[in-house]
Amino acid sequence: MTLKSALTYLLSFMGYVLLQAALLNKLVIANSIFCFFYVGFIFLLPLNSSRMLQLLLGFAAGFVIDLFGDSIGVHMISCTLAMFIRPFWQQLVLGDIKEMPGFINIQGVTIFRFFTFTMPLLLIHHFVIFYLDAIGTDFSFSLLPKALFSAFFTFVVLLSIQLFVTSFTKKK
């Protein structure tokens, strides 16, 4: 890994995590639909990044978010699980893409493929978080819809940022 790419990783890590801790942790619809936008950082890591690095970065991102959310362990477990699954899913959905410099972005894949790649990972990640939070309570109600709506919410935020960035770079 070159110094430049290491710096890119570090900056985007801090950007995603700080934005999540400062802004999006507050943004909860109807007290039950969450946006875990920070997963954009780990789910969209470059296609050719190594599996070990992906796992470690997922673990680290979960750790920092847990510190800010007073939920140590919860995001760590779900992020690490999602990052373990990611390479298999990537092989299946984006396996034919040989070359894509930098983070996975909407310019490199179509919106539809972007959706099929991120959505299942988001669902697993969100569901595990809500499940861990609900352990010990009577959670016969609404775990699955909660995860589903939250995953959609996160996806919409991720997509809007992608589209925003795309239109910005095109103008240049």
Partner: peptide, 21 residues
């Protein structure tokens, strides 16, 4: 199988933190 082993290790750490906390 190093990726799998790392995965198990990280998950064990996380679960331990969650439970002990």
């Amino acid at each position: 199988y190093r990726a799998f082993e790392l995965f198990i290790l990280l998950e064990v750490i996380s679960v331990w933190l969650l439970v002990s906390n």
